[in-house]
Design a protein around this nucleic acid. Sequence first.
DNA 1: CTGCGTGCAAATGCTTTGCATATGT
DNA 2: ACATATGCAAAGCATTTGCACGCAG
Lengths: 144, 144
Amino acid sequence: MDRFRGVLKENNIKCTKGRLSILKILEENKEAANAERIYEKCSKEGVKIDLSTVYRTLELFEKMSLIEKFDIGEGKYNYLFKEHNHKHILHCKLCDKNLEIDCPMPQVSDIIKSKTGFVLVEEEIKFSGICKDCAKINKRKEEK
Amino acid sequence: MDRFRGVLKENNIKCTKGRLSILKILEENKEAANAERIYEKCSKEGVKIDLSTVYRTLELFEKMSLIEKFDIGEGKYNYLFKEHNHKHILHCKLCDKNLEIDCPMPQVSDIIKSKTGFVLVEEEIKFSGICKDCAKINKRKEEK
DNA sequence: CTGCGTGCAAATGCTTTGCATATGT
DNA sequence: ACATATGCAAAGCATTTGCACGCAG
């Protein structure tokens, strides 16, 4: 349990029972969970906490890069402890610049799962396109 | 303009000024648009219509498979005229069954665009995983 | 002791729905 | 004429925010 205290201290986050409990729950969870689910788990562990506090805590953890928040559609979000996160490269076809983004697959994966019950275990993706800056330049050319 | 009347008739949808206008706007739009944007375009064309009617019309068109509704996160949706829609195969690694889904890339694309300004123009994806039925069987095995 | 964290209630923003009226066929 | 489409206002729902009080450092 002191491990979690340490994590919070390292990130200059004040220790409170709620935050410790949420951190623990997130760390133990392999799968992404939503605020409600985390709220319920807190209750089960006897930690009385308000749902709004759960949201605020998750927001804080995300800002501190302890977890990743991802949008699963319908205005809902899941939260996942950062551990095996990986990135993707967006390669601009015009300027050859590379831009790094968090892997968007957890979202796709969750969407597909909720709609079809299909669980993705493997995927290969290659992204390429046109970056913001090049898009601007392109637009200017078109306007001439 | 009669083209649109025809489309509605074919689908047994009553013709109203609002529906015609929305169908026209959708057909002319290359990019996916949200209800608000469609509502604004109606107004610009002098078609007075309520936002709730726009939503109901979009819901109807989607049910009739004239358009595709896709979730772009934050509880928001975009609508796209069906024309160049393509599908993907989900291949189950356990039973070898194939499941067809609408390409999830428009969503990913819109999400990436809104967050980074990067416009995807090309992607290669290969999905494989475990289908609903096999997941069930697997679970049963684990429980033993 | 002081500022940050919290509970509670109310607000938000997009979308959906109920109901009385208007409109297409 | 009759069912169905529409406008208006109000409800839904996950998430966010304002405010007064409470607790960690």
